[in-house]
């Protein structure tokens, strides 16, 4: 039983946490792709930027959240989401829009987004240094221990994780309602389906593009902040996020927001399961195993230092066997 709790804490909880983060990042990537038709490589850095803005705001007003009983970082989220969205829209206007107007190939947009990646990385590290920093400034992370009868090991879940699950659920439901009910949300899907016809129907495509950046920027801020709140803010966050969120978006079928959510959880759980040491679960069976079968201490599929291999392997597998993704994305 203890082993099962261990499994729950280290796989179910951890996998859900990573899954939520990747899903929110991948939704942004997939939305930008479906409206603007290019892979936006600076997205992981937008997640970092959002978290960094929250860090700055939290440092400036460390006790803003006390009266609400929430971590200050959470209270600062809306402000940071607005700021990051503005930055995203600004980057689009200054850097991407002129290239679009020139009618460049998508690959040039990709290189431009790599340029934006470097700019954002440089800026963030210029001001933050390179060390890790907790988003709990002058406060402590609450950790919930749930004791089950008959087991010694408690289920452990932290406050940021609970907030993350709630926020992800709200964000996903909100996005779903927006895309299926709101006039602009439907227009967004229409533009992703057929941009020329959307224009010919009188849909304001500029507005839709702005809206896309706002949604993607806000989700990026949410994901980046909640990840940093759970662990710590690191300026090289984007390095660990880039490959998984793209793998998630591609697994789900590029241009397919619900696919991105599924892809995010798939990649998140695959990573967690791959680095999980399975010999812990098999330990109770050790005595009943035949003597010739010696159980190694380390039965993890890959070491944590090779975690990056997991999303890459998933990516390659999808590209080889099903390039349109599990949910039939738009374009190969």
């Amino acid at each position: 039983m203890n082993e099962l709790i261990y499994f729950f804490n280290y796989v179910v909880v951890a996998g859900s946490v990573t899954g939520c983060i990747y899903a929110m990042g991948a939704i942004g990537v997939t939305l930008i792709y479906s409206i603007l038709r290019f892979a936006h490589f600076a997205h992981a850095d937008m997640m970092t930027l959002g978290a960094f803005v929250v860090l700055l705001l939290t440092l400036a007003f460390p006790h803003a959240g006390d009266s609400l009983g929430l971590p200050t970082a959470i209270v600062m989220l809306p402000l940071a989401m607005i700021f990051t969205s503005l930055v995203a829209v600004g980057i689009d206007r200054v850097f991407y829009q002129p290239l679009r107007a020139h009618g460049v190939k998508p690959i040039v947009m990709v290189i431009a987004s790599l340029g934006v990646t470097l700019m954002l990385q440089g800026l963030i590290r210029l001001f933050s240094g390179t060390g890790a920093e907790s988003l709990y400034v002058e406060a402590r992370k609450a950790i919930f221990r749930i004791e089950l009868p008959g087991v010694t090991r408690p289920i452990i879940i932290t406050e940021p994780q609970v907030i993350l699950f709630v926020v992800t659920l709200v964000a996903v439901i909100g996005l779903h309602l927006f895309l299926t009910r709101a006039r602009l949300g439907k227009a967004m899907r229409a533009m992703s389906d057929n941009p020329d016809l959307a224009r010919a129907s009188g849909i304001n495509t500029k507005l839709i593009i702005t809206l896309t950046w706002v949604i993607a920027g806000s989700l990026a801020t949410l994901a980046g902040t909640l990840l940093s709140l759970d662990v710590a803010f690191k300026p090289d966050l984007s390095f660990f996020l880039l490959l998984p969120i793209f793998a998630a978006a591609i697994v789900g079928g590029v241009g397919h927001p619900y696919g991105a959510i599924a892809g995010g959880f798939l990649v998140g759980f695959a990573e967690t399961l791959a680095v999980f040491n399975w010999s812990v679960l098999l330990r109770p069976l050790r005595d009943s195993l035949p003597s010739w079968l010696e159980l190694p201490n380390n039965l993890a599929l890959v070491g944590t230092e090779y975690k990056i291999v997991v999303p890459f392997f998933i990516l390659i597998a999808v590209l080889v066997w099903r390039p349109t993704g599990l949910f039939k994305g738009k374009v190969i």
Binding site: V110, F246, I308, V331
Partner: peptide, 18 residues
């Protein structure tokens, strides 16, 4: 699509380094 080559090369580089 050419975007996929970008992400794949980016990934393989980090894996080789790791």
């Amino acid at each position: 699509r050419s975007d996929y080559l970008v992400i794949a090369t980016l990934g393989i580089a980090e894996i080789i380094k790791a």
